[in-house]
């Protein structure tokens, strides 16, 4: 469960988030939307402890994040699978090694790494490309590799920041279906997207931000 309690984030000159109270239940799938600059990215940054709230409290699984010190951040982030708009793949290694990275970081044995990475690649339909360099894949395929990497360590929470930002509508729908499939097996999914046409068809909660305020979808 993710819980924002009266969270504000102020950068030097402006308020990125103002007094946000929001609960996302375990196993829920929700979208965050709003114009660019509305605070979507800031919300995700706070959740990943890339930044700390200026005021208010953010808890994940009943644990206040303010109690997590610098040393604990790495372990905390392993609760999440993250999908980036520009997928952030490493082009100096194979598709397989990209997907296996979270497992290596989490300290899985080699046999587990092989088995799970292949299973994740199979889920996104790219098992036959495991030896390829990610640079040789299409944009949609790269994003699917990014998703495989995000889910490979079986995180409890999957976060995606504009995952379909660079994809055409058909590919976007396909990617969203993938997220829905993970949600069906119990993963909490939180997706920031401004593709309103796409997300309104998905029939999940839509959280709308406007100039740092929550204007719709606070939930419960």
């Amino acid at each position: 469960m993710i819980e924002f309690k009266r969270v504000s984030k102020r950068y030097e000159s402006h308020d990125a988030l103002r007094d946000i109270s929001l609960t996302i239940d375990t196993g829920e799938m929700a979208f965050i939307t709003g114009h660019s600059g509305a605070g979507k990215s800031t919300l995700l940054r706070l959740l990943l402890l890339l930044d700390r709230p200026s005021s208010g409290e953010l808890s994940v699984n009943q644990r206040p994040t303010s109690a997590i010190k610098r040393r604990g951040i790495a372990a905390y982030r392993r609760n999440f699978g993250i999908v980036f708009q520009d997928h952030q793949l490493l082009f100096d290694r194979s598709v397989f090694d990209n997907v296996a990275l979270p497992l290596v970081i989490a300290g899985f044995g080699r046999r587990d790494v092989n088995r799970r990475a292949r299973a994740a690649l199979d889920k996104v339909g790219l098992l036959d490309r495991e030896g390829a360099n990610p640079a040789s894949l299409s944009g949609g395929e790269q994003q699917r590799v990014g998703i495989a990497r995000a889910v490979v360590a079986r995180p409890r929470i999957l976060i995606a920041d504009e995952p379909t930002g660079n994809l055409d509508p058909d590919l976007s729908a396909e990617i969203m279906e993938l997220f829905r499939a993970f949600n069906r097996v119990g993963v909490t999914v939180l997706i920031a997207s401004h593709d309103l046409a796409l997300i309104s068809r998905m029939r999940h909660r839509i959280i709308t931000l406007h100039e740092g305020r929550l204007i719709e979808g606070e939930g419960r």
Partner: peptide
């Protein structure tokens, strides 16, 4: 740098 940023984002410790 890019690689370090990515692995830290997906939960790599400073030691790693």
């Amino acid at each position: 740098r890019a690689e370090i940023v990515v692995i830290k984002l997906i939960g790599a410790s400073d030691g790693f």
